[in-house]
Write a protein that binds this DNA or RNA. Structure first.
Lengths: 217, 217
DNA sequence: CCGTTTGTTGACTGACCAGTCAATCCGGAG
DNA sequence: CTCCGGATTGACTGGTCAGTCAACAAACGG
């Protein structure tokens, strides 16, 4: 995560570009993208104002870079999970697990990505729509295969299931981001299980015979 | 929805305050709260710049007003639904229905509320956290009662179920807001059913005996 | 008919900040 | 030692906009 700076005798400072990105995560997470000034990033990185513009064309490009760096990792991970020979439910668990762990590992970065990009319908969200959709498509693919082999019902479309699954995850992260939910090792692990349990298992009591409340609308 | 203006002979213009609020919905939805200037609101409302400040202390207060107006209706509706004698699944359907219909009726307003308030962890979201949480608490209450009477399993906590349920709804609305999902009468109705079906029924195939994939993590 | 209150107008101000740029620093090649 | 190019600095500029305010209009009661 952090580079080894703060060593009194050493100027250190190997990769200023990286330092700026790391500083931007903190600055964006703390004040929000709009309220955060470029000078906040520079200050946080202990770097001159102008240097930010040496490495990035604009403040926007800094956020774009942060988002793409992380989201591409997510896409790779989902693809890899999908490639494994696993029940769909376990695949979904692995995905939820990765995202929750991403938050555990670097909450500020995930906060920035979710709040400033993924959910920002008027700015960066639109810019990165295509990239964001790829994740949905991969998840939908998992559901589709599971429906084909009979391990998932086909009561809802794969695309819709992906939406609900990802929505549940994002809402949990949002709960942590807003301090609505307690954070901690146990909570993180429990959240992973609960997400999958809710989406796959459902809330209804299954008492053997078809649920009484299962009626089409 | 709109007041009857544009009548050539009549100055009309009964309630300027309302006109400003309606104009703000359009302006915020189109450009986003940050990018939207107060003059955009005034122009959209066909009103002088200064009048906005006659009725509202600040640009923020305009958004606050829009949010509270609508969210309080939501809270009332959920409370009323909860008071009825209905299966929990039907209560959840009614709530999903109300929210989806709110979007159908005034997509711009719902877009503004979701994008600029509900999901804005660094600005209005924090301000209105308490109000937002009330909705979760009401939904959690419905789940809790259903678990007590046995119609819902208690595999997950009520609070978590509420989070997942609301998360799924918000994600569907977000899909419409981002133009990721097709909109139309059929799609709206189907979304209501799918949301409840996913959260209550779950994705797993229930073949009579306890689901093979039901294992604690 | 006048005074008061409330509604309405839009030019103006003060603050803020993204992005520019000319100057300086520094490491290495010749 | 000198020169070159990339790294680094931070003062400055230009434009934007939220919010103010002084003036004008309309409604209304006395």
């Amino acid at each position: 995560m952090a580079s080894a700076s703060a060593q009194p005798g050493k100027p250190a400072t190997p990769d200023k570009r990286r330092m700026i990105l790391d500083a931007a995560v903190i600055a964006f997470a703390t004040r929000g993208f709009h309220a955060c000034r470029v000078s906040d990033i520079a200050d946080e990185a202990n770097v001159a104002y102008g240097l930010v513009y040496h490495y990035f064309r604009s403040k926007d490009e800094v956020l774009d870079t942060l988002f793409l760096e992380r989201w591409n990792v997510l896409l790779e991970v989902i693809t890899e999970i999908d490639g494994q020979q696993l029940p769909a439910r376990d695949k979904l668990y692995a995905i939820a697990s990765f995202i929750v762990d991403s938050y555990r590992y670097d909450p500020d970065l995930m906060k920035v990505i979710i709040v400033e990009v993924t959910r920002a319908a008027n700015s960066f969200g639109r810019t990165h729509l295509k990239t964001i959709r790829e994740a949905y498509a991969l998840i939908a693919g998992i559901v589709e295969k599971a429906q084909a082999d009979g391990s998932f019902r086909d009561a809802v479309t794969p695309g819709f299931a992906a939406l609900a699954f990802y929505g549940a995850i994002e809402q949990v992260l949002t709960g942590w981001i807003f301090d609505m939910l307690p954070r901690g090792e146990d909570e993180f692990e429990q959240a992973k299980a609960y997400i999958v349990e809710t989406i796959c298992g459902g809330l209804d009591a299954h008492d053997g015979n078809p649920p009484a409340s299962a009626r089409a609308v």
